[in-house]
């Protein structure tokens, strides 16, 4: 017996999901962050964020298709995290890293928070 492992399958599928997002195909939720709107797929959001997982597994909330985030969350920080969810690449700039970390904490994306903290610490050193 043998099997073939396609080593780039995860990135090929993720690229296709991002193409679907950019063409607004089968997106099923709008995330509102301080009046800015971001369309996305609930399944991708809940696969990446503890907060979205708890929202979309809650019988009372799973059919919501507009979600307003806490007004404290910065739209740019959220946008960077949304792009990360669909590309695995997290854009880190001096001017936005705190907004990204704050949004990641709120979205319960602990691994991103830890990585940002290590990046910050390393850049201070």
């Amino acid at each position: 017996d043998s099997c073939i492992q396609f080593t780039r399958h995860a990135s090929d599928v993720l690229l296709n999901l991002n193409r679907l997002r950019s063409r607004d195909i089968l997106t099923d939720v709008i995330i509102v962050v301080n009046r800015e709107h971001f369309r996305a797929h609930k399944t991708v959001l809940m696969a990446c964020s503890g907060l979205f997982y708890s929202i979309f597994t809650d019988q009372m909330k799973c059919n919501l298709n507009i979600i307003n985030l806490d007004p404290e969350i910065n739209p740019e920080g959220f946008q960077i995290l949304l792009d990360f969810m669909y590309t695995s690449r997290l854009s880190l700039r001096e001017t936005s890293i705190m907004a990204v970390m704050n949004a990641a904490l709120y979205l319960q994306m602990e691994h991103v928070v830890d990585t940002c903290q290590r990046f910050l610490k390393a850049s201070e050193e």
Partner: peptide, 21 residues
């Protein structure tokens, strides 16, 4: 897949969805 020979395929695994139709 214990005990099964795994052959790694580095090429594309699925079709690529175009940026637009």
């Amino acid at each position: 897949y214990d005990g099964v020979t795994t052959i790694k395929e580095m090429g594309r695994s699925v079709h690529e969805i175009p940026r637009q139709d």
